[in-house]
Write a protein that binds this DNA or RNA. Sequence first.
DNA 1: GAAGATTGAGGCTTCAATCTTC
DNA 2: GAAGATTGAAGCCTCAATCTTC
Lengths: 148, 148
Amino acid sequence: MQAASGVLTPALQVQLTALIRALGLLEAERTPCGQPLSPSAAHAILELGRGEALSLGDLGSRLRLEKSTVSRLVGQLEARGWVDRRRAQHDGRLLRLSLTEAGQQMAERVATSRATFFAQLYDRIPPHRRAAVLETLELLVEAVDATR
Amino acid sequence: MQAASGVLTPALQVQLTALIRALGLLEAERTPCGQPLSPSAAHAILELGRGEALSLGDLGSRLRLEKSTVSRLVGQLEARGWVDRRRAQHDGRLLRLSLTEAGQQMAERVATSRATFFAQLYDRIPPHRRAAVLETLELLVEAVDATR
DNA sequence: GAAGATTGAGGCTTCAATCTTC
DNA sequence: GAAGATTGAAGCCTCAATCTTC
């Protein structure tokens, strides 16, 4: 990736991801990162990679997916050895999801792939328009969310 | 809908739709229009409502969906009495898709619902930012398409 | 009974293979 | 053989119903 991208690339990534989730369009991303993962699996691992242990509901609301979907999704990630799925001690109803060693490595790979993808996208936007694009995407996400 | 929306609303609609299709996110729109149609069915009817008869491939590329998906989709629309599916006279391989009377009425209803939805969205964007939002969407679609 | 998670049923999509017509 | 359309197999998602724990 070119050095041209600069520090605003992460912001584009965040904003576009937010837009996608806001619109409820998560599913169709067609894994642009080139990793052997479904789009939602990539998002889940990325979210879990943030560090804090999440419950199924937490993960679901962040990904904007149904809890049933997330349940099956996590089941696959666990089967692949990337996620650790434990019951919370203080409350037997909640699940305490976290990444395994292998899961964290995958999270890093996904993060890198994503960064590259978004950097390419960013490079294709005229430099003097970039700031406006980011600001505007934020407005859109807000507007879409408000419409619900 | 408020009069405030003005003439730029159609542009927002066009741009956002283009973005959605460009990202390949068609499927998940969750029929925001409130019509008893799946998102892709709504898009298909809208596209067919433009007037010209399309082949399966034409419709597929406009909706950015696989030909197999479109084949089944059109099958449903035909079963519901909205689409007329004929073989082209000059080339027996091609299909000549068009809307029936009922299909055209549905197309109008969908168009109206969509217009309302996008008008609401547009109204939620600060007036002095609207032009920037549209520009952004345009730039994004271009950038995304260029990434493929 | 409420909250959190899981399971069952059905819809939409993609990819691959197949059929038909040129 | 190539182009256009259809069919088969499998993945991901939503909604609804069910099970478990508080």
